[in-house]
């Protein structure tokens, strides 16, 4: 066993400030974001990327909403691979995303949620492509140049083959982390698990820090083991204005205010964000 920094049992702690975590993601990175629509997204980190003036990012996610919309609004995005984009709740389409695509400010690779998952699986499984069920009769494979292959075992069935999707980073919002980077998620984990296996590097925002002994008591609750995680930041409420089960629900008035404010300026929204206090402390 290689000598480790820290103790014999474990590497040193991986805890960073939110600003430090965001600064690890350079301009031009491709970033997969956990959660779905307004639920358990790593939104504090998304806002921190905007505060730090990040540019030319690529967002990879089956169902982005607030995250992709605010990145488009801030001019931080160059490209996306996405399945379905909307604000959801009762907020309809994601207006700034829509404008960014219609005015060609960003490039869209439109996926079905499952084809995006197939690409992440190809990367996670270490294979050059991943068959994806369905897609028959859809114009998406041709649009994206996806190839069809015939079953080499002779059933005659044709299946669409999706190339690997390897995000530079996956960022997850978790219920808890250990100081070593073990990740616990409560309720549904959406696509976070496959995203964490597909990416080159994994960063995590969490509601709280739990002692490593708590993880040892119930290891089956750990979605991502610490050796796969590079750094973590503890930001209570960081999925705001979205939900984090079972701690808090969507802050509907805050989302409404974000949607209703018509100009591009985000200063008021960023000022209202929950992580502002944590940043002031730092």
């Amino acid at each position: 066993m290689q000598p480790q920094p820290g103790s014999r049992d474990a590497p040193g702690d991986k805890i960073k400030s939110l600003a430090e975590l965001a600064s690890m993601i350079p301009d031009g990175s491709s970033v997969a974001l956990g959660g779905s629509f307004l639920h358990r997204g790593p939104f504090a980190l998304v806002r921190e990327l905007i505060r730090q003036g990040r540019r030319d990012l690529e967002l990879i996610k089956q169902s982005p909403g607030y995250d992709i919309d605010i990145l488009c609004r801030a001019g931080a995005l160059r490209r996306t691979r996405a399945g379905i984009v909307a604000m959801e709740g009762n907020f309809g389409l994601a207006r700034w995303y829509r404008k960014a695509v219609e005015e060609k400010e960003i490039e869209l690779e439109e996926h079905a949620c499952a084809s995006l998952t197939a690409g992440l699986r190809a990367a996670a499984f270490g294979v050059p492509f991943q068959p994806c069920g369905g897609l028959h009769g859809s114009a998406l494979p041709e649009l994206n140049g996806w190839k069809w292959g015939e079953d080499p075992y002779g059933s005659g069935e044709k299946v669409c083959l999706i190339p690997p999707i390897t995000p530079d980073f996956t960022v997850i919002h978790a219920n808890a982390v250990s100081e070593l980077g073990d990740v616990r998620v409560l309720g549904t984990f959406h696509w976070d698990r496959i995203m964490s296996r597909a990416a080159r590097r994994v960063l995590v925002i969490a509601e709280k820090l739990l002692p490593i002994e708590e993880f040892r008591k119930q290891p089956e609750l750990t979605l991502v083991p610490h050796f796969m995680v590079e750094a973590v930041s503890v930001v209570p409420g960081g999925a705001w204005p979205g939900s984090c089960w079972p701690l808090y629900e969507i802050d509907y008035p805050a989302v409404r205010a974000y949607v209703d404010e018509r100009d591009r300026d985000l200063s008021r929204h960023l000022e209202a964000a929950v992580e502002r206090e944590a940043r002031a402390d730092a």
Binding site: L108, A112, G133, L135
Partner: peptide, 29 residues
């Protein structure tokens, strides 16, 4: 059959819609 991608030409949309989502894989299966 369904369209959830774009109103108008996909490459020059009048309205960009939410996109592929579940349908392209679930409708045929």
């Amino acid at each position: 059959q369904t369209n959830v991608s774009a109103i108008g030409d996909w490459h020059n949309p009048k309205v960009r819609l939410p996109g592929g989502g579940g349908g392209a894989v679930m409708l045929p299966t």
